[in-house]
């Protein structure tokens, strides 16, 4: 080594030593009450998706209510299953690691996959904070003006109507299957790798329609037409779109997003988190509602009841798929 580069290394060395010193000293200070250190909030999907964007919105408000940093990190893969299975295997029930959860994903995957690696009931649910109802959507240029038009076409041409959606055995897929049963038609469901790719396929005329989330109807108001929404009541930001119920089909469903802690987390910590999330939800409600989300406030027992209710809703369809797989 030349003397010049030696000096370079010495300088770097001094600098880095300082850094190391700070690192060791920093976490020393400790207080008594939860939370006393940063909370890691895991999102089991890619950056840019609905789960991520919501978490980013919540982040700063959560920090305010909890008084500690909340760090959002991503662990995508397997439609969420990679993060959920690792979470149930390894996360410590101390309230410092929490994870975003979704219905129907956490209901369907453990039922249909041999190696999902986690259980629906293996979470300590903190809260379900919003709901995005499914909606049957077509392009503005489509000849189908109403749900009846669409179903009449599907009835006349079995399997010819292609309905796109995000993923297999997802909320979109299961809803399409329920619509087929309810209306007595046969369509071809075409799964996509996310909600994103469904839009160009719809606009480019590669699909007859799509079973997507209600937000799409708001975001792409100029280009898409919502034929029916799978909610109990009309969605605030889509006042002109009828519900399936109004049109005589009892179909209500969609994706619920929420947050959970590891099984065995002390109830007072869960309550504290639930409180912070509820308050946050109230603040971001206005922004989210405009985007087409339906806000929910299911905490405590309600959170588990919601899972049970949705489980019942989907059980029939899921069982049918599972049986089909066995028969093959």
């Amino acid at each position: 080594m030349s003397s010049k580069s030696n000096r370079l290394y010495q300088m770097v060395f001094v600098y880095l030593c300082l850094v190391a010193f700070i690192l060791v000293v920093m976490p020393a200070a400790a207080t008594a009450e939860y939370p006393e250190k940063p909370i890691s909030y895991i999102i089991s999907f890619n950056p840019g998706g609905e789960s991520d964007v919501t978490a980013r919105l919540q982040e700063s408000h959560l920090e305010k209510f909890l008084g500690v940093p909340v760090n959002v990190s991503h662990k995508p893969g397997g439609g969420g299953a990679v993060a959920w299975s690792e979470f149930q295997r390894t996360a410590k029930p101390d309230g410092y690691t929490i994870i975003g959860v979704n219905i129907p994903h956490i209901i369907g995957q453990p039922m249909l996959r041999k190696d999902a690696g986690y259980e629906t009931n293996g979470f300590e649910l903190i809260m379900w904070f919003h709901f995005t109802p499914n909606a049957l959507i077509v392009s503005k240029e489509s000849p189908h003006k109403t749900l009846e038009d669409f179903l009449a076409y599907a009835k006349k041409n079995p399997k010819a109507a292609t309905v796109g959606g995000s993923g297999s055995f997802s909320a979109n897929h299961l809803e399409t299957l329920r619509m087929e049963r309810a209306a007595g038609v046969q369509v071809t469901y075409v799964p996509h790798t996310g909600t994103g790719p469904v839009i160009p396929a719809l606009l480019g005329g590669h699909l007859t329609g799509a079973m997507g989330y209600s937000m799409l109807g708001v975001q792409y108001k100029d280009q898409l037409r919502v034929l029916a929404v799978a909610a109990d009541e009309r969605v605030e930001s889509l006042p002109d779109a009828p519900t399936f119920k109004e049109l005589g089909y009892d179909i209500v469903g969609g994706a619920f997003r929420g947050v959970a802690a590891p099984k065995g987390t002390p109830p007072e910590i869960v309550a504290k988190l639930a409180n912070a999330y509820s308050e946050t939800n109230k603040i971001i409600a206005e922004k989210q509602r405009q985007l087409g989300f339906v806000m929910t406030y299911a905490t405590g027992k309600d959170a588990y009841a919601l899972v049970d209710r949705m489980k019942k809703n989907y059980e029939g369809i899921l069982q049918e798929i599972a049986d089909q797989k066995k028969k093959q």
Partner: peptide, 13 residues
């Protein structure tokens, strides 16, 4: 050893 500790600490931070 000190260089290495500093280097790792730098990235760690």
């Amino acid at each position: 050893l000190f260089i290495v500790i500093g280097e790792v600490a730098f990235f760690y931070l």
